[in-house]
Write a protein that binds this DNA or RNA. Structure first.
Lengths: 140, 140
DNA sequence: GCATCTATATGTATAATGCACATAGATAAC
DNA sequence: GTTATCTATGTGCATTATACATATAGATGC
């Protein structure tokens, strides 16, 4: 058989299981993880579909391999669960759903992003002398 | 002598000289470079001092080694120039100043950041259902 | 002489990707 | 009926932006 429900391939371990939101620099890492979790919170989905959805978030040229690898890693960390969907035509799809831990991670990450936003605005103010992208007219 | 004005150490080449703003993912890279350029645009400065200034931008726990390495790299790429300042007491300081190319880079980077901001707002809207931290009152 | 502060730098590791490529089911084209 | 194409998932290897640990050295106080 091509795929049973629990095949294991332990290769190229990435990041450990804790402190996965922002590093000491304060800049948020793992954008991809966060965006995928956000999508999965809306609706269960699978890699090939998430690839398109992620494009709307600026991951236009995202490589499939990267995405699939991240999804597997997320599962290993308990942020998502997966199962095969063989109902449709075409190759089977590994369908992911977000877990409680995934929701918690997303919440944490969103918090750090808010901090980041302030940093960004600070950058814009120092760069342009004013706040960013005021809708042209409501300027001063 | 401990340091003459043009000592060369070609080791561990990093990123090539072009397309240094945002990758295919659309997320801005090289925050550190941008922040340093922004500071140098305000006033010429040196590593040890920039370390503190960068802290205000969220790079609180930035490692000195990282910063010095980035500065040297920036110089190699022509974004900054440097020269030794031996006037004060204490060890000599390598003082950096921004170049035309540096200004251009900063401009480019700021542009990509603006795009990024939209992505971020999109994330917040999908996450919370509304815009991020509008200063309560100036909403519509 | 030794600790300490300032200041710069290197060696090595890691984490988040990127790119190239492999595999495989389903279907359409020839 | 084999070949191409689309969907779908995956692995191997490289790169890049950092991090961490450590080294070096001038200046000053004890």
């Amino acid at each position: 058989m091509a795929h049973d429900d629990e095949d294991r391939h332990e290769k190229q371990e990435k990041r450990d299981d804790s402190a996965r939101d922002d590093g000491p620099t304060g800049m948020p890492k793992n954008w991809l993880t966060a965006v995928l979790l956000l999508q999965l919170r809306e609706l269960n989905s699978y890699g090939y579909d998430l690839l398109e959805k992620a494009a709307a978030f600026g991951f236009a040229a995202l490589n499939p391999g990267t995405l699939y690898r991240v999804l597997r890693q997320m599962e290993k960390e308990g942020l998502v669960n997966s199962g095969w969907d063989t109902s449709g035509q075409g190759p089977a799809r590994r369908v992911y759903s977000i877990t409680e831990a995934g929701e918690a991670y997303l919440k944490l990450w969103a918090g750090s992003l808010e901090q980041y936003r302030r940093t960004m605005d600070m950058f814009f103010r120092l760069y342009t002398g004013r706040s960013p992208d005021k809708p042209k007219g409501s300027d001063r």
